[in-house]
Simulated scan of single mutants.
Amino acid sequence: MYRLGISADGRRLATPGKDGTVRVWDVGDPAAPVAVATLTNHGDSVKSASFSPDGTVLATGSADATVRLWHLDAGEATTRVRARVRTPIDPAEWQRRFPGLPHDPPCGH
Rank of each mutant, 00 (worst) to 15 (best):
R3M: 14
R3V: 03
R3L: 12
L4A: 11
G5K: 07
G5Q: 11
I6S: 02
S7Q: 06
D9I: 02
D9G: 01
D9N: 10
D9K: 09
R11Q: 14
R12Q: 11
R12S: 10
L13Y: 01
A14D: 09
A14Q: 01
T15G: 00
P16S: 05
G17M: 11
K18I: 04
D19K: 04
G20C: 03
T21H: 15
T21E: 13
V24D: 04
D26E: 14
V27N: 05
G28N: 09
D29N: 15
D29C: 05
P30W: 07
A32M: 03
A32H: 13
P33T: 03
P33G: 09
P33F: 08
A35N: 11
A37V: 01
T38C: 14
L39A: 04
L39F: 09
L39Q: 10
T40L: 13
H42P: 06
H42T: 08
G43K: 14
D44A: 15
S45N: 06
V46M: 07
K47H: 04
S50L: 00
S50R: 10
F51D: 03
P53M: 04
P53N: 08
P53D: 13
D54W: 12
G55D: 12
G61M: 11
A63H: 06
V67F: 01
R68P: 01
R68Q: 12
L69F: 15
L69Y: 12
W70F: 09
W70V: 09
H71K: 11
A74V: 12
T78S: 05
A83D: 15
A83K: 14
R84S: 14
R84Y: 04
V85F: 07
R86M: 04
P91I: 01
A92I: 09
W94F: 01
W94G: 10
W94S: 08
F98R: 03
F98Q: 07
F98Y: 14
F98H: 13
P102C: 03
D104K: 05
D104A: 15
P105G: 05
P106H: 08
H109P: 00
